[in-house]
Write a protein that binds this DNA or RNA. Structure first.
Lengths: 182, 182
DNA sequence: CTGAATTTTCAGAACATTCTGAAAGTTCAT
DNA sequence: ATGAACTTTCAGAATGTTCTGAAAATTCAG
């Protein structure tokens, strides 16, 4: 139950890995999540390591991180020492959590620094240059605020639309798959 | 005209650098853009290098990349060998170009790979497992499509709203700044 | 054309990230 | 309580990225 993977599942895992890497996470995170997503049953760490040819350490840290992001869950089986893991399957839940958490942190830190920059600029002697710098800093701050607002509203209000759209698509897909499957 | 920078401008440049880095580009790109954004006049490469304490090489590649992303423009001065550069100031123009270009490329490549994964999975003997894997791959594909659609519509339709919101904010800001500036 | 000014390129250095493998730590069935 | 089963941690290796500095290429005023 766990040769190194090949074929469809590996292809998939690597594709997801690349997307995730493109989004600024480690590729391993995407690969591990994908493997769990494609499985019918929860997997143990050692199993994942073998399928993806990763070391125990890499799997352990990846699973830890995935859980912190809330995209993988731990599953206990009664009377078993071993821990099993399964993937969160609700894409929206994952996206919204990750986007909100990541951007919220960044937004705070950046707004802080721009405020400090503005204060520092105000300390300079008045001049056309100073006024220009101040105006540009204010514009940057304003943009940060707008961006945050847009992201927030996207996360909150678009959720319904997104799900509706998504469900529609996956329903047509599911119908097609059901027809195909034997 | 170009000691190593300090104070407000450096603070700003580094803040922008970090944001940009968080979005998966080199920090240097953000810093160079920010310096140009804060300046009243176009700057030459050597000038930028000194202000940000970067090597000529780093500045050259950064400016090249920024131009390819359309967020920095080259400016000629008649009878001058030297090239000058200025920042694009329309945030939306920048965001939409970068987002669309980056995500379009990724979306294509990923959809391709998922299709190949599906084909490969179909080659396996029919079984409950195969059906499940296929269904999950289809869901991933569907999600990729939805995500692309959402991004596209965001880029196109939200543009108006975004600009309206942004202008509102920057107008109030501009008024305040104008009042302050002597 | 020429050559000085300027930009681009690129090999290697410096730095940063991620992985491995094994030791240390934890947990639970007994 | 014990110890086998399993997980986490971490130092060092491997890998990947970005920068430097100088050589090569380009450009344009004269």
């Amino acid at each position: 139950m766990s040769e190194p993977l090949e074929g469809a599942e590996l292809l998939c895992a690597d594709a997801v890995g690349d997307v995730i890497e493109h989004w600024g996470f480690r590729k391993a995170l995407g690969r591990v999540w994908a493997i769990l997503y494609l499985e019918t049953v929860p997997l143990g760490a050692a199993d994942i390591a073998q399928r993806l040819t990763m070391s125990a350490g890499a799997v352990s840290t990846s699973l830890g991180e995935l859980q912190r992001w809330g995209v993988v869950r731990r599953v206990w089986r009664p009377g078993e020492r071993k821990e099993y893991f399964e993937a969160e399957t609700d894409f929206w839940k994952m996206i919204s959590k990750v986007v909100s958490e990541r951007e919220r942190f960044l937004a705070e830190s950046v707004k802080d620094r721009l405020d400090r920059a503005a204060t520092s600029a105000e300390a300079a002697p008045k001049s056309a240059k100073r006024a220009h710098v101040l105006e540009r800093i204010k514009r940057l701050s304003a943009f940060a605020n707008v961006a945050q607002a847009v992201l927030d509203s996207f996360i909150q209000s678009q959720r319904a639309d997104f799900q509706k759209f998504g469900n529609l698509l996956s329903l047509t897909r599911a119908a097609k798959v059901a027809k195909e499957a034997s």
